[in-house]
Amino acid sequence: MPDTPRPIGSDAPQLAQPRYTPIKRRSFFMYAGATAGATALVLAGCSKDSDTTPASTNTTISLGTGDVGVLNYAYALEQLEAAFYAQVKGLTSTPLSPAEVTYFTQVAAHEAIHRDFLRAAINRDAPGKLLQDLTPNFSGIDFTKRTMAAGDSKLGILDAAKAFEDLGVAAYNGAGKLIKSPAYLVIAGQIVSVEARHAAYVRNLITPGSFAADDQVDATTGLDKALTPSTVIAIMGAFITQKLDASTVGH
């Protein structure tokens, strides 16, 4: 880790800072062993480069199999969302209203927490299987626009936020059946409803009353969208530099 900066997450300084310090894996596992009296330790970081899939923009990176694959899949999503909101939060000149900035700052914290939580969970339960840090590609987003206007080729901030949140909800909903460990199913449920709240909020900003509109919630069944990992990863592909392979997630 000391040799490469972390492209995603580095933009959320208060959360990301510990990652720049060397891992204390031995201490980590002492904690992970969770004897009740374990002394508080500085969980400086949970990964090192040798544990992660080698970085490359040419090769396809597999998210892995089984529950770890699902967790890495969620981790990829949360990395993307956290990076996006960190950028929104950090804009020196923003098209958003002050109230919206306040709200997106809170959303940024939630997504960074989801990301770091999944990172900790994977490192604890599947050491060495953590997906590498991804590099976002937000060239399709115009951070000077609140929403895209007719004729614009790039998404505005709210359009992108809506796309990411809707995608997150559909991704978690579609991944539920792939999760084998009940504990992870509960955790995924605890995260997805927060994503759904974000989605409803940003949808209402774009079009009041569209919090659960027919393009997201099926008008005949009342069921929210659910997408397979491969479909989600294909959509995410436009926003990340690395190529991911989700074909073995949950298998």
């Binding site: 997805v192 759904a196 709240r197 409803a200």
Partner: peptide, 11 residues
């Protein structure tokens, strides 16, 4: 699961 997230959107 798909109803669950709709409840969250309503809330």
């Amino acid at each position: 699961l798909r109803i669950h997230s709709v409840e969250a959107e309503h809330s």
